[in-house]
Each structure stands twice: as structure tokens, then as C-alpha cells.
Design a protein around this nucleic acid. Structure first.
Lengths: 204, 204
DNA sequence: AAGAAAAGTTGAACCAATTCTAAAATTGAG
DNA sequence: CTCAATTTTAGAATTGGTTCAACTTTTCTT
């Protein structure tokens, strides 16, 4: 099962992703020519297209890794949230936002988001939509957890509130990556302010 | 001031927009080649690039017209809203959504949204961000109006609630245009459901 | 271990957006 | 009216992502 071909394939995948990650950061998404990625990965252009349907999918693979890390980090908060609705939400959202620029620059985020709406049916488009859904579910799970603990009224529609909070956060994040000078603390403060009405309404 | 040159310029602008609108609808954004738009507008390729920085800006001009119409239609609701918070919001949002596919196909919306995040500093990118801001302000204005009438508590942060509602609606609209089979009534119902908690919380 | 089949690799050719440049048209000063 | 300055045009050249047909390498079979 683990013949030479398998190992070579895995190795090429890694080399392509590594080369692309470096070049995207060095030259930006547009600036990173496929030819250059191929050269740095020591692979031909054709091989890249054998592994990824298009340039966007290469970026997509990088984005997916990052979002999966964030989802993982979020699990901890859902499992044992701060004992206060506002703080619980702020902590989870904080994890998302603070991790977001670890591997990806704002420009990479912009491109990734653009591609996911431009080509919703491409491999990456579908993966991105799936990741958004996972994040929404995680926020809803936090609300459900808070309902169990007795911090949130059990008669509120947790799924709907989770969607509302995620959609607002996501839109704010989109505006955030669109402005290079926008700063993380301001983003978090703005989202906290927007959530305040909601937090007051759903808390016990 | 209104010499031959002025009139020709206005005429060419119109011809380019008309040709592009037709071709975008017939062949989709990607399928509408600049060469074909130029031919139908009876203008050269160079001329198109003299009038618009890039293909996206042509689409941008069309989108801007559409959104401005929607903003206009929304004014009526803000001026005399239905006598009930839930209905007021639903009516305004309904106007936005129902108008949205008048001139633009889902594919055109996808492209327009993608371009606005990909190139936030291009003429169209800035215009699009501005239009989003206008829509947010209009929703906030509706909340303020409802506060005046006494339907919404005066102690809630109307601007924050307006942003929350717009951002959620906009995100839902993005998901809506990403799925060709998604239908308007379902979209409206989902947004109504999400807004319900909020409506209950801010109503008097 | 040889030969055939399967799987993967390569890079030159293709295509469409965008840029560039020389030619043509319009304007206004004298 | 004329012509130099300025704007606009046309379309050829450039550019970079993507495709494709020929070539290699690996695996399988006996």
C-alpha cells in the first residue's frame, strides 16, 4: 500500500504547498506565479495542475489547514466556557480572530474569500462553505452548552442565534481583511458591541 | 461644455454598459469576452479600458445602479414602516431581496462580490463597500424610526442592531447567490427566523 | 526478470485580460 | 481658417493561468 509512488505523491504535495505558502507570503497571491511555485517545488507546471485543479485550490489547501486549527482550538472553549455569556462568546470569537493571521496574510484571506464566492462548486469553494458551517455549528454548540449550564434561557432558538452571531462576525472579518490598516482589537471591540444586545436578551 | 466630444463620451459609456449587460446575462461574466463587448458596443478594446479600469469595473457600474435602486425603494419603508417591529424589518429586507435579481443574475452577484473583496481599493471595490454602508445605515435608520414611534425600546443601541441585522442578511444573501437552486422565499424565512430573537429583545 | 499496462510527469501551445504605441480626431488659440 | 496640443482610438504585443499530447516511471503479471 505504501509503495514508492505513494511516497512520491505525498512528497510532491508537501513540496507544492510549502513552495506556495512561501511565495504567497513573499509576493502575494497574484504575485506568486504558478511557474515560480513549480520551480521552487521542483516540479513541472503540469504536475501542479495534476494535484490541484487551479491556483485557487492551492491557496484553499492552506486556508483549510488554518481553519481546522482554529476549530480545534475552539473546542476547548465550548467544553468549558467562561461563566458568563458575554465572556464566553468573546473568548470563542477571540480565538477565531487571534489565530486568523498566523499563517495567512490579509491578502491571502481576501483571495480565498473571493474564490469561494466566485467558484462555489470548485473543491475549495465547497470546502470553504463547509468550514463556515462548522464554525457556525461550534458557536451554536457553545450556546447550547450555556443553556445546559443555565446561563442562557432554554426557550431561545440556539441554532438561529448561533447563525446570527457567526454571520455578523464573518462579515466583520471580511471588512477587516479588506482594510489593511484595520486592527484586531478594534475588530473585537466592534463585535462585542454588536453582540451586547443579543447577550442581554438571551442571558438568564 | 457640451461639445461633440462630451456627447460621444456619454454615448460610448452607455453603449458599453448596454452591451456588457446583455452579454453578461447571455453568456455569464466569464463567458462575456471583452472583445465581444467591444464589438457589440461598436468600440475598440482600448476604448473600453479607457473608460473602465478592468472588466470588473464594468460589472461594478451595473451593480451600483441596481443597489441604488434598491436603496431608493427602501426609503419608503423607513419613512412609513409597518406598525410592528418584525414586519417592518421583514418588509425592508424583503425589498432588498426581491429587487436583487431584477438586473443581475446570481452569477453576476457572485462575481461582483468576489471582485469587491479581491480588489477592495479598486473603484468598484470602494463603491461596493460604500453601498454596503448605505444599506446598513438604512436599516439603522429604520430602527431609529421605530424608536421614535415607540415600537422599539429607546435604550437599545440602534446602530449596533442595524449592523448586526445587515451583516447577517448580507451573509445569508452571499450563501444564497452561491447556490443556484436556493430560492427567495426560503432565504426570507431563514432571515426572519434569525431576526426573531432580536425582534423580541428590542421591541417594547 | 521481461514486457505490458497503468499512472504520473512534462513543457510547449493556447486563450483571454490587460498594456502599449502609433495613428486619428477634436479642440481652442491666434 | 489653420495647426499644435490634447484626447481618444485601434489593434498588436504581452502576460500568466490552464490544457493537452507525448514521454517516463512505477507497478503488475507471469
Amino acid at each position: 500500500m505504501s509503495g514508492l509512488r505513494e511516497r512520491q505523491k505525498a512528497d510532491r504535495h508537501r513540496r507544492i504547498i510549502d513552495a506556495a505558502t512561501e511565495l504567497f507570503r513573499e509576493a502575494g497571491y497574484e504575485g506568486a506565479k504558478i511557474e515560480a511555485i513549480a520551480a521552487r517545488a521542483e516540479v513541472s507546471i503540469g504536475t501542479i495542475y495534476n494535484y490541484y485543479q487551479n491556483k485557487g485550490d492551492i491557496l484553499g489547501a492552506i486556508v483549510s489547514m488554518e481553519v481546522n486549527e482554529v476549530l480545534n482550538a475552539g473546542q476547548g472553549v465550548v467544553a468549558s466556557p467562561p461563566a458568563n455569556v458575554g465572556d464566553a462568546l468573546d473568548t470563542l470569537i477571540g480565538i477565531y480572530i487571534e489565530h486568523s493571521l498566523n499563517y495567512l496574510s490579509k491578502e491571502m484571506w481576501r483571495q480565498a474569500m473571493a474564490i469561494s464566492t466566485q467558484l462555489p462548486d470548485s473543491p475549495f469553494g465547497q470546502a470553504y462553505t463547509g468550514l463556515d458551517r462548522e464554525l457556525t455549528k461550534q458557536i451554536s454548540a457553545l450556546i447550547a452548552r450555556l443553556q445546559e449550564i443555565g446561563l442562557v434561557r432554554v426557550d431561545i432558538d440556539g441554532a438561529a442565534v448561533g447563525e446570527l452571531i457567526f454571520n455578523n462576525m464573518n462579515m466583520m472579518f471580511i471588512e477587516f481583511v479588506k482594510r489593511d490598516e484595520a486592527k484586531i482589537p478594534e475588530l473585537r471591540a466592534a463585535i462585542r458591541r454588536q453582540n451586547r444586545v443579543l447577550v442581554a436578551a438571551i442571558g438568564t
